[in-house]
Computed example of a mutant assay.
Amino acid sequence: MCLKEGDECILNGRTIQIFLPFGSPRGIKIAEITNRTVQAIYIPRNQLEDAKERSEVTNVGVYFLFGQGEDDALPRVYIGEAENCFERLKQHNREKDFWETAIVFVTNNNQNQFTKTDAKFLERLSFEKAQEVNRYILNQTVPASSFVPEWRQADLYDIFETIKILLSTLGYRLFDEMRNTKITDDPQIQKNEIFYCKGKGLKAIGEYGEEGFVIYKGSQMSKNTSNSIHNYLITTREALKNDKIVEEDGEAFIFIKDYPFNSPSQAAAIILGRNANGWIEWKNIDGYTLDQLKRKGV
């Protein structure tokens, strides 16, 4: 199937082709931007043995292992490189427990394969970019750097942009910034995109977007919870503390990084420590609710 990515201008559009070699949409997938030489092979861990039938995964490449524990507030990723990616994945299958999915990146041009140096450069670059965005827990030490000539670095930075797009298309927004909006003095942005949730002695700020509700760094979370709060919200609050997404700060906890929630109501309930309707609790600077602005068009 083909997906169109980008809607600002037809010149910014990209056609992404996804091939299902075994016919299952939940199984192994091979994704590529049709005019690029990089391809992604998506491999569920329980289908690793099937992947050996694909010669692509035995090439030099960079790979990503994704997973999330029950008690983790953030998903985890391991970024690696290998001369034979399939053999390395078999090793990780024996030695690493956390991961559920592997995505391998190789070139689809037999005459222009990655070198070992290319793969090491992409591994280090991917690690640094993932660290900057801070969406995932990096389940590893810092990869070693490698010397790459300036002309080849330009090529590899372009390849990295392809990797970024394909990962996001496959559902892993490892390199995508959480915020679509920056806090600004622009009154229209203030009124339409930035929302506030307030409780006793605390305030949180965030935005509503395509992946739910993002609470901004510096927002406060109540230390207390009501007796009627749902158990899954208590579990989530504990995970935020354990993973140091929030830290104790006087009479409240404070978010030390941006953090996304599935819905406005989940975000509000976490902040307030009680069950909450986020469509009403989140308000803009003029006091209009998220419901009024985003669903009723006030």
Rank of each mutant, 00 (worst) to 15 (best):
Q111T: 05
K164W: 09
K217D: 08
K52N: 08
E238Y: 06
S55C: 08
K283D: 12
Q113V: 09
K182M: 08
Y196Q: 11
W279G: 10
N109H: 01
A267W: 07
G6K: 04
S222C: 06
T235F: 09
N277Q: 14
Y196R: 13
L240S: 10
S146M: 12
G297N: 15
N12C: 08
L65N: 00
T289R: 12
P21L: 03
K191E: 14
T141W: 01
E32N: 04
I33F: 04
I41D: 00
Y288S: 14
K96W: 04
K198T: 10
D286W: 10
Y259I: 05
I285A: 08
D7P: 05
P149I: 03
A204W: 02
A276P: 09
A31W: 01
A154S: 13
T117K: 14
V142M: 04
H92A: 01
P21A: 03
D249Y: 11
K241Y: 05
K90H: 00
L170P: 04
T141I: 06
Q220D: 09
F22L: 06
N109F: 02
I159P: 00
Q47N: 07
D155R: 13
Q188G: 11
I103H: 07
F64Y: 14
L74C: 00
E83Y: 02
L65M: 00
N84C: 00
A239Q: 13
I28P: 09
Q188K: 12
K182L: 06
I234T: 12
Q266M: 06
D258T: 14
T225C: 07
A31M: 00
L138N: 05
N180E: 15
E281L: 10
P187H: 08
T34I: 12
K90A: 00
E150I: 05
F114P: 15
L202N: 02
A204Q: 03
Q190M: 11
S228F: 15
L202H: 01
A252N: 11
E210K: 09
G199L: 01
E247M: 10
T181R: 01
N110D: 06
G218M: 07
Y172V: 06
P260W: 04
I33R: 02
I229D: 14
A73S: 03
Q111I: 03
R173G: 14
Q68K: 13
I79V: 02
T181L: 06
L233P: 12
T289Y: 15
L240K: 11
F213K: 00
G218A: 05
R135D: 11
L202C: 02
R135I: 08
E53T: 15
I285P: 01
D176V: 14
Q17A: 02
S219M: 08
N224D: 11
S263V: 07
D176A: 09
K257A: 12
F86Y: 08
W282H: 13
Q140N: 04
N35S: 07
I215Q: 01
